[in-house]
């Protein structure tokens, strides 16, 4: 079980592919910073490999004007939720 943190927008498709190769069946992906753009419906293809186990950080999505535009399949977590995720998963890996 691993929590993957990603901060790159979907225009960097190589990192999404590399992450998908390392992504396990019990893993979770948290989109932060510019990766919030991957939570838009138009970018759904970039998240297809992650089996719906994807969250986006609400503070970062809000600052980019995205909160009302997010895909239904992406759960929204706030900073407290971020902390809870890091406590839930024994290990975290940051992709940047």
């Amino acid at each position: 079980m691993m929590l993957h943190l990603l901060n790159r927008s979907p225009q960097f498709d190589g990192i999404y592919w590399d992450l998908s190769e390392a992504f396990g069946a019990e893993d979770h992906l948290l989109l932060i910073e510019d990766a919030c753009y991957a939570a838009l419906p138009a970018a759904a293809a970039s998240l297809a490999a992650f089996g719906g186990r994807v969250s986006v950080l609400s503070e970062d999505a809000a600052s980019r004007g995205l909160l009302d535009r997010l895909s239904d399949g992406v759960t929204v977590v706030d900073m407290a939720g971020f902390v809870a995720l890091t406590a839930t998963f024994p290990r975290s890996l940051s992709w940047f």
Binding site: M2, G24, F96
Partner: peptide
Amino acid sequence: EADEIDHLVHAQPRTLL
């Protein structure tokens, strides 16, 4: 292949990227 990378990464106690 991708599934082998998944197993490799998850078998390690520490990973730096």
